[in-house]
Amino acid sequence: MTRRDSLLAVLVTLIWGGNFVAIHVGLQDVPPWLFLAIRFLFVAFPLVLFIPRPKASWQAVVAVGTFMSLGQFGLLYLALSIGMPPGLAALVLQAQVIFTMLIAAGVLGERSTSRQLVGAAMGTVGLVIVAVGFGAGASLVPLLVTVAAAFSWAIGNVVARAAKVSSGLSLVVWSALVVPLPCLAVSWVVDGPEAMGAALAGFGWAALWSTLYTVVGASLIGYTIFNGLMARHPAGSVVPYILLVPPVGLLTAWLALGEVPNLLEWIGGAVMMAGVAVATLTGRRRVAAPPEPVPARRGSAQQGGVGHPGQQRPQ
């Protein structure tokens, strides 16, 4: 990856790291499925009226919307609403890194380098350390729902990679059309029309701020950049950067919600960042010194017609 693309990947991790607290704030007043429908309604409209459809099959666009948007965030919003702490969610969701590499290897035939495998292993160890340090803050059900969200995200990553859409923004906007109607239907069944109406009537500043952050920051900016990177680079080069999201998420939850990381969580975050560096940063290659010119014999310039003494004709 170029330095510019590496910096863009880091920007995405910063945006997504704060996304968990933003979602948590909005879910205090709005049911999860209704809140997700509102988010992706504004991701799609009005931009879908002005942005051309991505140069990919309808099947690919629908699959990205189903797995990367509806599946991932539907399960994540559900997990957060039933007790998953935002900091821990930022950690567990990054299981998608390993899932993506495995699925890309099986479906796309991509093979990770030994450096990437070592980095992914280090990142996984870091995730485990953070999980141990975080403790039993969440019950088993929210944890499993978050792991399922990570698996859905990984499938969406591989579909986006296979589609190779040059415009990440068009894929984000058009795939968002898949989300609102199913979410509204689920909310109608689970929450009921009265609860939905009350939530919309009491839609306050906190919910509005959360919606703006998730729509503009996490979806339109974050996924536009991320899908563009996935289209230009192998999954094994892009996805490890997302291991930076848990430390950012833990720090944001600490500052905003008082979820204070302990020593093990800080150590785990450091190990994860080291894993990202190993998996994504290439070492400098040594440049071999140019061979010393071979002295030409006296008179060879005139006899061989090769120019000045000491120069060799390029082969």
Rank of each mutant, 00 (worst) to 15 (best):
P293L: 15
A95I: 12
S69E: 08
A218K: 01
A150H: 08
W16P: 09
Q96Y: 13
L244H: 04
E194C: 00
P32K: 10
V159T: 05
L264I: 14
A154W: 00
L208E: 15
W33G: 12
C183V: 07
P193N: 04
M196W: 11
Q59P: 12
V128H: 13
A136I: 05
L102H: 06
T2V: 10
V248I: 08
K55Q: 12
H233T: 13
V158M: 10
F45T: 02
G204Y: 01
M68W: 11
V189Q: 10
A235E: 11
T13D: 14
Q311M: 15
K164Y: 07
R232I: 03
T282F: 07
V130F: 02
A138R: 08
Q302A: 09
G126P: 10
L250R: 03
Q311W: 02
A121P: 04
L143P: 01
M122G: 06
L36Y: 03
R298I: 15
L143A: 03
V306Q: 13
L144G: 07
V159I: 06
A131E: 00
P295L: 13
Y77C: 07
V25P: 07
L171A: 06
V278K: 07
P290S: 14
G83R: 04
S57H: 09
G228F: 02
V306C: 09
T214V: 15
W153Q: 02
V178K: 02
G26R: 04
R285S: 12
L243D: 08
V173R: 12
I221E: 09
I242R: 06
L281S: 06
V239D: 08
Q72M: 15
R297M: 13
V132R: 15
A160H: 04
L177R: 11
G18I: 00
A279R: 07
L281D: 12
V130S: 05
L117S: 13
A131M: 14
M1Y: 04
G268M: 04
I155M: 00
V278N: 11
Q311Y: 09
V173H: 07
G307H: 03
A195H: 09
A150Y: 09
S166D: 08
M101T: 11
V141F: 12
G71V: 00
L251W: 09
L14I: 12
P246D: 08
F203Q: 11
A105R: 07
M68Y: 05
H308Q: 12
F67P: 00
G258P: 01
G168K: 02
H308W: 07
A95K: 15
W33C: 14
A154P: 11
R313F: 00
G222E: 13
N227W: 07
G133P: 03
E194F: 13
G18F: 00
L208F: 05
M272E: 00
R297Q: 09
F35I: 06
A121D: 08
V132S: 14
Q96V: 00
W188R: 14
P142H: 03
G133S: 11
G137P: 14
T282S: 14
G197E: 01
I15N: 11
S167A: 06
I242Q: 05
G283N: 14
R232E: 15
L184D: 08
Q59F: 13
